[in-house]
Amino acid sequence: MGKFVWTAQLEIGIDVIDKQHRRIVEYINQLDDARSSGHPREEIGRVVSELVDYTLSHFAFEESMQEEAGYPFLKAHKKVHDLFAQRVSEYQARFLRGEDVSRELNSLLVTWLFNHIKRDDADYVESVQSNLQRQNDFVEKKKGFFSRLFK
């Protein structure tokens, strides 16, 4: 399949989320490397496990940011995450039964992540960025207020 190359086109503009997405891309590339280099099955299994664990943590983090921002489509976004997690767990189960699903899984991950970032994630950016800006403004305001108390 080849390397999944991170491009600016995939950046949503929320640094912490972009970094997490880049990390998922790194895991996808590790899976492709392990698969195409003929690494032992245990190595492929380790990469798949780490990739899934990291991705599920990312989903939880992303959902918490959306909830905090009052994103109106959080339930729908969470449903997309849940369906994807279920699909990936089916691949993991097949892998544990001895099937070689690494090529198929790698292809699914690349396609799904790209489309998810461009469509689903792009939808919540405005809500989350507005919330982050409000939090920033609040902190800056408080800093200014308290600094006068200690002069």
Results as ranks from 00 to 15, higher is better:
Asp18Gln: 01
Tyr71His: 05
Glu63Pro: 00
Leu96Glu: 15
Asp137Gly: 01
Ser57Pro: 03
Asn106Trp: 10
Leu108Phe: 15
Lys143Tyr: 13
Leu105Ser: 07
Leu74Val: 04
Arg35Val: 10
Glu67Asn: 07
Met1Phe: 07
His39Arg: 12
His21Ile: 01
Phe84Tyr: 03
Glu26His: 08
Arg35Asn: 10
Lys19Thr: 07
Ala76Met: 10
His39Ile: 03
Leu109Gly: 02
Gly70Val: 07
Tyr71Leu: 10
Ile117Ala: 10
Ala8Arg: 12
Gly13Phe: 09
Phe84Cys: 08
His58Trp: 04
Asp121Arg: 01
Ser49Ala: 14
Glu90Leu: 14
Gly45Asp: 04
Leu96Asn: 09
Asp53Gly: 10
Ser37Pro: 02
His58Val: 01
Thr111Pro: 00
Tyr91Thr: 04
Ile44Cys: 06
Ala122His: 10
Ala8Phe: 04
Ser107Arg: 08
Thr7Glu: 14
Leu108Ile: 00
Ser36Pro: 00
Ile117Asn: 02
Lys19Ile: 06
Val25Gln: 04
Leu56Gly: 05
Leu83Asn: 14
Phe61Thr: 05
His39Gly: 11
Lys79Glu: 15
Lys79Gly: 02
Leu51Ala: 07
Phe61Ala: 11
Phe150Met: 13
Arg35Asp: 11
Thr55Lys: 04
Val88Lys: 05
Tyr124Cys: 03
Leu113Val: 04
Asp53Gln: 12
Ala8Gln: 13
Arg119Ala: 11
Phe84Gln: 08
Ala93Cys: 03
Arg103Leu: 14
Asp137Glu: 14
Phe59Asn: 03
Phe4Gly: 00
Asn136Val: 06
Ser102Glu: 02
Ile17His: 01
Glu68Trp: 05
Glu99Ile: 04
Met65Gln: 12
Ile44Gln: 08
Arg119Ser: 13
Asn29Thr: 04
Leu31Glu: 03
Met1Val: 03
Gln20Asp: 15
Leu109Ile: 07
Leu51Phe: 08
Asp82Gly: 02
His77Val: 02
Phe138Lys: 11
Ser102Trp: 09
Gln20Asn: 02
Lys141Ser: 14
